[in-house]
Design a protein around this nucleic acid. Structure first.
Lengths: 321, 321
DNA sequence: CCATTTTTCGAGCAATTGCCCAACCCCTGG
DNA sequence: CCAGGGGTTGGGCAATTGCTCGAAAAATGG
């Protein structure tokens, strides 16, 4: 009997045993002790065989539930984009563009942070999804915390968005609020500089340095996209952005499909807090729906964020490029 | 929100959580503690969710190895025929009628019994498979044990079988031997009675009463089957048995396809120790190959034995009737 | 054949898991 | 509004499992 075939045989016998043990352990539900006496092995030998069966993939675990695929998608997103937090919720088949699931998941995550007794600073962006998320937060009273805006809630003409996330969240939990009483985009670079010289802006910057995490929406850069429709960006601005390859924006900052921020010529009038690239704290993008796929993929590729809460369909779309 | 749908939703949420937990536990390999803090649940809650996931079949275990199907077949055989011992070994695809695997498995089982220091009595039948099994026994020296024949090893004309299992096994382990120096079948009922009146026969009966277990082969009743070819049964005997519906025999005792022993007219000349029906001790049938399928199924159906060692193909054939 | 290296073994212990129980919550129906 | 009952919770503890380590056995090499 030659060495190789002998070794092979030994190994096969080992695998046979491992498979038997795995069957008895996982399927028949016996304890390792029982199996040990059944097969007259030591308990430790059985333990090793179980480990081997798992390592050698003799035993396969399969979760038969919709969330199983969500978990897998979350893991793949985490790996691919180096995320610190990723949550994928099932897509409601009756309302595939609904933000409900994502909003609840986001609310849960925020609640977890806000549950703390020690005062924390939480930065939030704006948008419908974030607003919906905030609506899902219940029953917390945390006056010690500070909610800070990452982005202004006004257009250059002074009219305010209806989705004022900071105020609503602060209301909900009785926290201190730090909105940004500035437009998303100034009329000119000079105006932007002026606005940024206000002490209020410096306070926001300082607060953000202390922030535990940021949660923000994302938007596509396209005609009739929310920022355009609501008048935050003019036709001319938008036209320029699109020409420059912008496909999405975070708190006003436009980026291309590689997640590279556009330069001063195009992002120069944005008054929102600058994006941290790479993020210095947990920075979670919250979005779902097919319009968000490209912007999300781009932002994650460019490491503009290190967290993501989305739904199954969007997650799948992000990964299948 | 009505009660039913509320409860349903609650349950679904529970199952979602359970699926998440199961995924993290079984697939991601996290500990319950880790999962608990990740999902901010108590450790016990996670434990319950894992249990629920298993109970609700959310998590499915699959052993990807040939022996997995063997284990399942063994379980089904155990359930269906009320067995105390059942072992199914993989069929060698290159030699599907080979008794090698079954012989090794049988040897292992016998070794386990014979390993004991306290003296035991072991009864054995005859046949090629049993002989092969005994050949696989190694390195035991147990002079305190007694090996007892369940069946004679001679034909009525005095010639002995080449498969003398008792002597070979006793040689191997240095045990005391109690062969049955009688034919399988007497020439007449009178001769049978005479043989049974010998003190040797009574000794064997007494020894069997003390036996820990019996291991025996099985044979088909058919033209050119071993018992016929080797001259243990005459053409006339066999013809009668077949007419009476005999399809198999254990230590000479013929039975029909329901596992009912044939009556005195046909089994009246058998000198072998009577079968215990139902077995009063572990009684293991050792056989594989397509010729053995029917006899095995019949014998198990008639509860003529409470143990079985066979191969995958045969096991499958026995069950698919 | 013996020496050396590698693998395997099981005891002992630490970590993890399973389970029981009293306290608690949340319905439901007075 | 309250009382009762089913279900849920987490503490505490026992059972089970995982891991480390030195010893022993087996494979390897001379």
């Amino acid at each position: 009997m030659d060495g190789v075939s002998a070794r092979r045989t030994r190994r096969d016998q080992r695998l046979d045993e491992a498979a038997r043990v795995a069957w008895l352990y996982f399927i028949a539900g016996k304890t390792q002790d029982e199996i040990a006496s059944d097969m007259q092995l030591s308990r430790q030998a059985v333990q090793r065989l179980v480990t081997m069966a798992v390592k050698e993939k003799l035993i396969h675990f399969q979760v038969r539930h919709q969330v199983a695929s969500c978990m897998e998608l979350a893991e793949r997103l985490t790996d691919r984009f180096g995320l610190e937090l990723c949550e994928v919720v099932p897509t409601d088949p009756d309302a595939p563009e609904s933000t409900a699931g994502v909003a609840i998941a986001t609310a849960n995550r925020m609640e977890r942070l806000l549950n703390a007794e020690a005062p924390i600073v939480l930065c939030v962006g704006s948008g419908r999804t974030m607003r919906a998320a905030v609506e899902e937060i219940h029953g917390l009273h945390r006056p010690q915390h500070k909610i800070v805006a990452l982005v202004g809630s006004m257009a250059a003409d002074g009219h305010a968005t209806e989705y004022d996330v900071v105020m609503r969240l602060a209301d909900k939990i009785g926290a201190q609020r730090f909105p940004a009483p500035v437009p998303v985009q100034a009329r000119s670079i000079e105006e932007r500089k002026l606005l940024q010289s206000l002490s209020i802006y410096r306070s926001l910057l300082t607060l953000r340095e202390q922030a535990k995490a940021s949660f923000l929406g994302i938007a596509e850069v396209a005609w009739q996209a929310p920022l355009h429709r609501d008048g935050f960006f003019s036709d001319a601005d938008l036209s320029g952005l699109i020409d420059q390859g912008a496909i999405g924006e975070l708190t006003g900052w436009a980026f291309d499909e590689e997640g590279r921020l556009l330069d001063e010529d195009y992002n120069g009038k944005i008054v929102s807090l600058p994006l941290e690239t790479p993020p210095k704290r947990l920075t979670v993008l919250v979005a779902c729906g097919h319009l968000k796929t490209l912007p999300l993929r781009a932002a994650l590729t460019g490491r503009l964020a290190n967290g993501l809460i989305t739904d199954e369909r969007t997650a799948d779309a992000i990964l299948s490029s």
